[in-house]
Computed example of a mutant assay.
Amino acid sequence: MFETTTDAVHPRFTKKPAYPLSGFKIALVQLAVGPDKSKNVAQAVKEIHLAKEKGAQLVALPECFNSPYGTQFFKEYAEEVPSGSTCHALSKAAAEAGVCVIGGTLPERCGEKLYNTCTVWDNTGKLLARHRKMHLFDIDIPNKITFKESDVLSAGDQITTFEYQGIKIGLGICYDLRFPEMARLMADQGCSLLVYPGAFNMTTGPQHWELLGRARAVDQQLWVALAAPARDPAAHYVSWGHSTLIDPWGAVRAHLTDQPDTLLADIDLSTVDEVRSQIPVRVQRRTDIYDTIQKS
C-alpha cells in the first residue's frame, strides 16, 4: 500500500501518492494475432520474457491477444478467469520473468455470459485485478465499419484500479478510452498511469486513437499507455496498431507503427506532480456546480 500526503496547494485536492519509485520501465507488446490460440499465447509469453531481459518492470499486451477480434470468435476462444489456460500461462510468465503483466484482453466466460476482460498479474504470478470492458463497441459508420459487440458480449460494471510497487494504475479497454468520466474517476482514485489495451480499426484508428489517448492524458494529467495488436490486412477485423505512450503534458513519448514490435520506454512519475502543480486544474474545478461521481 502506498502512503499519502496532504496536498499543500489546496485542501480540496485529492490526496496524492508518495511514490516509492521515481519511475519505471514499461513495455507495450504489439503482437501479431492469428487463429491459433496456443501459438498466440506462446508468443505473448516469449515477448514477456524478452521485455524483462530489456529491463521492463511492467509489460502490457494488446486487446484480444489470444484470439482473433470479432463477435464470431468470442464464444469459441472464451475461457474462465482465472482458471483458464491463458490465465495459467500469464501467471506463470509473470512469476518466472519477475514482472507485472497487464494481460491485454481475452474473451472471458462466466456462466452464460461472455466478457472482454483484462487480467493483471504481479511478479509472483498473483492475480491483481480483472477489468471487464464497460463500454461495448457498438458503432455504425456507413460504408466503412459496422460492429456490435453487444450481440455477444456483456458489459462490465466496475471501475478498475490496482497498485503495483506503490504505483496506482487504472485500466480501460479500447472503447472505454472514449469516456472521460471513467478516466476522471480513476485519476481521483490516485492513478498516475492509465493503460488501455485496444484494437482501434482502420477507420477510427487514424482519426482518434492517438487523439483520445492524448486527450485523456491532458484531461487527467497522467501517463496513458495504449497497447494494440499488430495489423493483419487479411484479418476479418483489421487493427490500426500504433501502440503509444503519452506523458501528462500530452506529448507522445514513444510509438510503434503497425508491425509486430515492442515499445520500451521509461515512465517518470515526477512528471505527474510537475504538471499538476504548474497547471492546477484539479483544484480549480467548480465542484460547487458540477462533479464526476461513481454511483456504484
Results as ranks from 00 to 15, higher is better:
107 P>G: 11
174 C>T: 02
10 H>Q: 04
209 W>A: 06
94 A>V: 09
19 Y>C: 03
112 E>T: 12
64 C>Q: 10
183 A>R: 10
142 P>Y: 01
165 Q>S: 10
207 Q>S: 08
123 N>M: 08
54 K>V: 00
262 T>F: 00
125 G>E: 04
185 L>P: 01
247 D>E: 13
26 I>Y: 07
190 G>D: 03
70 G>Q: 09
281 V>T: 15
12 R>L: 13
21 L>C: 06
81 V>R: 12
273 D>S: 10
96 E>T: 11
129 A>Q: 06
230 A>V: 06
91 S>K: 10
3 E>N: 14
290 Y>Q: 12
206 P>A: 02
231 R>C: 14
208 H>L: 09
147 F>H: 14
37 K>T: 09
153 L>P: 02
248 P>M: 09
201 N>W: 08
178 R>F: 14
9 V>W: 11
62 P>N: 05
215 A>H: 14
274 E>D: 13
75 K>H: 06
204 T>A: 12
269 L>C: 04
269 L>M: 06
223 W>K: 04
119 T>P: 02
255 H>I: 02
84 G>I: 10
195 V>M: 01
208 H>V: 03
15 K>R: 15
175 Y>A: 05
69 Y>S: 06
171 L>M: 04
71 T>Y: 04
201 N>S: 14
127 L>K: 10
252 V>W: 05
296 S>D: 11
138 D>E: 13
285 R>F: 11
142 P>C: 02
179 F>W: 09
230 A>T: 04
216 R>I: 10
58 L>K: 13
17 P>G: 08
194 L>G: 04
72 Q>G: 02
186 M>E: 07
292 T>A: 10
48 I>H: 11
7 D>T: 15
234 A>K: 15
219 D>M: 06
184 R>K: 14
227 A>V: 13
249 W>C: 07
235 A>W: 07
270 S>V: 06
